[in-house]
């Protein structure tokens, strides 16, 4: 359930085609455009949550809990004036506004997706380059990665979460750790194969210094597969977060994320389905959009896979 799609990423890909032509090619692909457009929309929804008619997503109201979508509540302000607020998506078991929670939840869920992808790529890239280039460290790093990989990802995540105090950083770390070995393997295999290329060997013979060698020949080759891999990691991060919440070790419910809103509402699925339905739709569509973006990117960036 975690990282399966990442396995489909190609091991080695051609260097990234540069320039405007690429952007144009990407956007001409309807799948990429659709996915990217939806993600942009979600990012906007998260960023603009405070001005989209929301309430404080953590404000509880025991008197009006578990109300259906469309329920109207009179709010009395401190100066005595009253306004009517319509709970578009109903209220949850603490009387919090589901609409506000889902909109604010976009922030957390997207933050998790992006930071998990960025962190696992960064750490994986670093370790992969080291393993691929510095021979004495190759063995130890790869054995450690083998070990990490052999532990089922979800169990590793559970253990990492209980290591830290439950919260956003712990959850991010928990999802990152199991993803790292796969990135390391990918990067290492690219480094190893690129090293064999005649032009790289020539560059080494010519005495090109390591940083330049990396920047000019090796890194560009990793960009395309890493971007593709990153999208799949991002998609799986959103899902894993939901699963961790389901198991009761996710982000504490006072910070709404789509995963924990669903997890909190799961017991009420039959009586008050709105608690799981609305965040579920947002989560599902977002993961779908990320996966579509990933598929499209792979088709476009990886000539070997094009035409499918």
């Amino acid at each position: 359930m975690s990282a399966e799609p990442t396995l489909l990423a190609p091991a080695v890909a051609a260097p990234l085609p540069l320039g405007r032509t690429l952007a144009a090619r990407l956007l001409r692909n309807p799948v990429v455009a659709l996915g990217a457009g939806f993600l942009l929309l979600m990012a906007l929804v998260g960023a603009l949550a405070p001005v989209l008619g929301t309430l404080d997503p953590t404000a509880i109201n025991p008197a009006t809990r578990n109300r259906p979508p469309g329920f109207e509540r009179t709010i009395r302000a401190e100066d005595g004036t009253t306004t009517t607020y319509r709970h578009r998506m109903g209220t949850d078991s603490l009387g919090r506004d589901v609409y506000s929670r889902v909109l604010y939840g976009a922030r957390i869920s997207l933050l998790i997706a992006v930071s998990v992808a960025a962190l696992s790529l960064a750490i994986g890239l670093l370790l992969g380059l080291v393993a691929g280039y510095i021979r004495p460290l190759d063995g130890p790093i790869m054995r450690l990665m083998d070990g990490l990989m052999a532990i089922p990802g979800i169990l590793l995540a559970i253990a990492v979460v209980s290591l830290f105090r439950a919260g956003l950083p712990a959850v991010i770390a928990a999802i990152v750790v199991p993803e790292i070995p796969r990135v390391v393997r990918l990067v290492r295999s690219i480094v190893l194969s690129v090293r064999e290329e005649p032009y790289v060997e020539a560059a080494i013979m010519a005495g090109t210094r390591l940083p330049l060698l990396m920047a000019r020949h090796i890194l560009p080759n990793t960009v395309a597969p890493l971007i593709v891999q990153g999208t799949f990691i991002a998609a799986s991060a959103i899902l894993v977060e939901a699963v961790l919440s389901f198991l009761g070790i996710g982000i504490p419910p006072e910070t709404p994320s789509w995963g924990n809103i669903m997890a909190e509402g799961r017991n009420l699925f039959r009586v008050y389905p709105h608690n799981i339905l609305y965040p579920g739709i947002f989560l599902g569509l977002t993961v779908l959009a990320v996966n579509m973006l990933g598929d499209g990117l792979r088709d476009t960036l990886d000539p070997k896979m094009t035409g499918r």
Binding site: A59, I60, L94, A166, I249, P252, P253
Partner: peptide, 25 residues
């Protein structure tokens, strides 16, 4: 027990406390 925490936090904050609610199993 789950719903007690957020209620306590909200009431205590209205009563002048600062509250750091730490969630765990």
């Amino acid at each position: 027990l789950t719903n007690l925490g957020p209620v306590a936090k909200q009431l205590l904050e209205k009563g002048g406390f600062k509250v750091d609610m730490q969630s765990s199993d």
